Computed example of a mutant assay.
Amino acid sequence: MTDLTGKVALVTGGASGIGRASALALAQAGAAVAIADLSPENGEAVVKEIEAAGGRAIFIATDATDEAQVAHMVERTVAELGDLNIAFNNVGRGEVGATIVTTTSEKWDWILATSLKSTWLSMKYEIPVMQQAGGGCIVNMASTAGISPQIAGSPAYSAAKAGVVQLTRFAAKAHAADNIRVNSVAPGLTSTPMVEAWFTEEMKYEVYSKDQFTHRLTRPEEVAAAVVFLASPGASMITGVNIPVCGGLP
């Protein structure tokens, strides 16, 4: 039920962290994968990993907040891999420890662009291709910060990820008749390079020790497993939902 042989998947922010884990997992399930990211070095490294395992992948240098680059990203995916059946819109950035008062206008705009605008832009160009093909599946990257206040989050990031959840539901309803399913995943604090760089051990412990049932960080591969499931035939009746992957964090 998770066989994606013959499918083409696009992963934005696919060069590291959850994006990398998801690109590898989608390829392992049989999909050809386009990896879009700002880092050519890391993106090409993921391509080599997929190819070494017998899969097919390409890298596309992309700023997912730039409309022209997003349009090119989708065009090149179809041109080089032949189709677009699955999209994981994973790009997003946050800020640690900011408050309503300390957040600057510049940082607010940057976080909303990277975490929300990028998701809208990606769907803007992915959906027409999927409509023409008779259907597809989109998974958007939300966060538990978008559904519950997070001690280590920021107002801009929380607002952006809440927006992703609602944008996902809007798109799912609007395009159900096109046979396009749209869902989102909401990880808790995950052991990605960005989290390891930004969070001290004390901060990480504070996030997951009090309310999270499992009392540990989420692994990128655990989020990737949810992405593959939502993209698979096994999730054929699932659309418009946000799936927390957070070990029970409320």
Score class of each variant (00 low, 15 high):
Val207Gln: 12
Ser158Gly: 15
Phe88His: 13
Ala226Ile: 00
Glu196Leu: 15
Ala53Ser: 12
Pro187His: 08
Glu51Ile: 11
Val227Asp: 10
Ser184Arg: 08
Ala162Phe: 06
Ser148Pro: 00
Lys48Phe: 01
Ala231His: 00
Ile127Phe: 06
Glu202Phe: 04
Val129Pro: 09
Gly13Thr: 04
Thr218Val: 15
Ala174His: 08
Trp120Phe: 15
Leu167Met: 14
Val47Cys: 14
Ile18His: 03
Ser143Pro: 09
Ala45Trp: 00
Ala171Gln: 02
Ala113Ile: 07
Ala224Asp: 09
Phe170Thr: 15
Gly135Glu: 07
Val96Lys: 15
Ala176Pro: 03
Ala36Asp: 05
Thr65Ser: 14
Tyr125Cys: 11
Met73Cys: 10
Glu106His: 07
Ser105Ile: 11
Thr144Asn: 15
Cys246Leu: 05
Ala156His: 07
Val33Glu: 02
Trp120Asp: 03
Leu84Ser: 04
Gly146Leu: 09
Ile127Gly: 05
Ser39Cys: 07
Val185Ile: 12
Ile138Trp: 01
Gln212Pro: 03
Ala34Tyr: 03
Val223Leu: 11
Arg181Pro: 02
Ala61Glu: 15
Ser209Arg: 14
Ala29Ile: 01
Thr239Gln: 10
Ile100Cys: 14
Leu217Met: 15
Thr65Gly: 11
Lys48Gly: 09
Cys137Arg: 09
Ser143Cys: 08
Val241Phe: 00
Gly92Cys: 04
Trp108Glu: 03
Phe88Ala: 08
Gln28Trp: 02
Arg20Gly: 01
Val165Ser: 13
Asn90Cys: 07
Lys173Trp: 06
Leu24Tyr: 03
Lys124Pro: 01
Ala64Pro: 05
Ala29Thr: 01
Val70Gln: 05
Gly248Thr: 01
Ser154Val: 06
Ala231Gly: 06
Ile111Tyr: 04
Ser184Pro: 07
Ala174Lys: 14
Leu10Met: 09
Gly54Trp: 02
Glu196His: 08
Tyr157Met: 07
Ser118Met: 07
Ala162Ile: 02
Ala36Asn: 06
Met130Ser: 05
Asn42Pro: 06
Trp108Met: 08
Val165Pro: 06
Lys7Tyr: 00
Gly17Gln: 08
Thr144Met: 15
Val129Ala: 11
Thr119Met: 14
Val182Ser: 13
Ala156Phe: 09
Glu206Ala: 12
Ile238Glu: 01
Asp211Thr: 14
Leu24Pro: 03
Asp3Leu: 01
Gly240Leu: 04
Ala25Phe: 03
Asp178His: 12
Val101Trp: 09
Ile58Ser: 05
Glu80Gly: 05
Ala71Ser: 15
Gly153Gln: 06
Ile127Gln: 10
Val185Leu: 05
Phe229Cys: 10
Lys124His: 06
Gly234Gln: 06
Ser22Cys: 07
Ser184Cys: 15
Ile50Arg: 13
Asp37Asn: 03
Ala21Gly: 10
Ala71Trp: 02
Leu84Arg: 08
Ile238Gly: 01
Lys210Thr: 14
Arg216Ala: 06
Glu126Ala: 09
Val8Ile: 08
Ala9Val: 06
Ala224Gly: 10
Arg56Ala: 10
Ile151Gly: 15
Pro187Gly: 10
Asn89Arg: 02
Gly94Met: 03
Ser184Tyr: 02
Leu26Phe: 00
Leu10Thr: 03
Ala27Val: 03
Ser232Val: 01
Ile35Lys: 14
Leu112Asn: 12
Ala52Gln: 12
Thr62His: 08
Lys124Leu: 08
